[in-house]
Amino acid sequence: MTVINIRGENVDQTWRDVEVAEETRSLDSVILSFASLKEHIETLDQKSLSRIGVRLTVNDEIGEIADHARHIGLIDLVFPNFKDGRPFSTAVTVRRDYGFSGDLRASGDILPDQALFLARCGFSTIVVPVQFPVKQFKTSLGAYTIAYQAAVDSNVSQVRDLRRSAVEVVAE
């Protein structure tokens, strides 16, 4: 499994999948299903939570663990198919509303051509589907150098910022 960051670089894989967590003591660098995490969440302190990841399908409601979300180490949002854009909005919500600053991972059925949008919506890592070369993701991440609208990666419209600085240069 290849995981890249939003600069297109390979990321070492420390996280491993666990189908069902039997007990919480050994939970370190594992990714749980949402159901499994919910089961254990009240017994976990902040420090343990920060070593745990959770995988959310589009049917899981992150709002159910809203108070804990920002302490989790990794949130993995799964695209059931690349045309289903819900994880983009969930990512924005997780970053902005829940203040999540850990690793926000995109996995599942993703096209290389979506990589820049993923980065802009706050994803920090991407699981590269086996059928696509990593370099295609890298190309896509650099396809556009600026954007019209603010997003998670930028609190301002870079286009309008550039226009303003251009005006200032002329004024000088």
């Binding site: 983009f88 820049l116 286009v159």
Partner: peptide, 11 residues
Amino acid sequence: QWSTFHPEFSY
């Protein structure tokens, strides 16, 4: 301008 290449609302 706002909607062009909108990262969240293109799918």
